[in-house]
Computed example of a mutant assay.
Amino acid sequence: MLFNPSQWLLRYPAALRPSKLVRLASDFRLFGNLAHGLIERHFRRDDALTMPDEVFERWFARAFEALVDEEGALLRMPGRGADLAHFRGRLLRAVYTLRSHVRQAGVVAVVPEQALEGRFEGGALAGYADLVLHKAAGAPAIVDIKWSGGKKYPEKLRRNRHLQLALYAELFRQQTGQWPAVAYYLLDRARLLAPDDRAFPAAETIAADDGENTAQLWQRILATWRWRVAQIRDGRFEVVLEATSAAATADSEPPQEALAIEMLDEAYNDFRALAGWRDGA
């Protein structure tokens, strides 16, 4: 709705849906889903924070094989042995490193897939945070887990455009009265990225170039939403195409207090064929 209102219009008010034919997941999505599942299983254990590393490694070996059997059978096919071994090694390193960050941060409780609910000017909001970490002292933290994105997510933090984390943080604030620290964890490189070090002393800190924080980002999200709502009430839904397409009009320029328009990845737009093509495309 913020960056490509026509996509929001077709998905929600128009309720168009892509085909329900079963499609095989890409390796990128499959690895991400399996990794999320294993991390959730680990931190739901009562002994997750006290488990010695050697015990964790034995648990990982059993849990990984069971998870692949249940949800990743594609990796058992002939010719996928190297892919499976490579994925196992990267995931073991990632979870091992994540456990180290949790210990160094003094975390006393981890809640995976925590439901977060709240409201804003437009109505109800809800989501599930990958990990919510509570500490004996200091602010709690929300960690969004991604399989990869070594260029994308550092840039989001640098530009103060971590919208998903900002939404989770606002919902958490509504529920608890506290602004949590936020971070991304990139599994394929075992990298913990944060805008500051107030929750994770060993994280890679990437401060926003404009000096703004997550609370200020939330205010920019609201300003952008109000701008789009005003257009929609006038019956106008902007169709945002590739940066090389037709020039934007004056109505495409957000107000100063809003977010700069971000070009969304067309690979995740189920309706791009309905938006038209550029000449010669």
Rank of each mutant, 00 (worst) to 15 (best):
Met1Gln: 11
Trp8His: 14
Pro18Val: 03
Arg29Val: 14
Gly32Ala: 03
Leu38Asp: 07
Ile39Arg: 02
His42Val: 04
Phe43Lys: 04
Arg44Thr: 13
Arg45Cys: 10
Thr50Gln: 11
Asp53Met: 07
Trp59Lys: 01
Ala61Met: 10
Arg76Asn: 11
Ala82Met: 05
Asp83Gln: 15
Phe87Tyr: 11
Thr97Leu: 02
Pro112Gln: 04
Gln114Ser: 10
Glu117Gln: 10
Glu121Trp: 06
Leu125Pro: 00
Asp130Asn: 13
Leu131Asp: 01
Leu133His: 03
Lys135Arg: 15
Ala137Asp: 12
Trp147Val: 00
Ser148Gln: 03
Lys151Pro: 05
Lys152Pro: 00
Lys156Phe: 13
Leu157Trp: 04
Asn160Cys: 12
Arg161Ala: 14
Leu165Met: 06
Ala166Asn: 12
Arg173Asn: 03
Gln174Arg: 03
Gln175Asp: 15
Gly177Lys: 01
Leu186Ser: 03
Ala199Val: 05
Pro201Leu: 09
Pro201Cys: 09
Glu204His: 02
Ala207Cys: 10
Glu212Lys: 15
Glu212Gln: 15
Asn213Gly: 12
Leu222Gly: 05
Thr224Phe: 08
Arg226Phe: 09
Arg226Lys: 15
Val229Lys: 15
Ile232Val: 13
Asp234Thr: 09
Pro254Ser: 03
Leu259Met: 05
Glu262Leu: 08
Met263Lys: 09
Asp265Lys: 07
Asp265Ser: 12
Ala267Cys: 02
Ala267Thr: 12
Asn269Met: 05
Asp270Glu: 08
Arg278Ile: 14
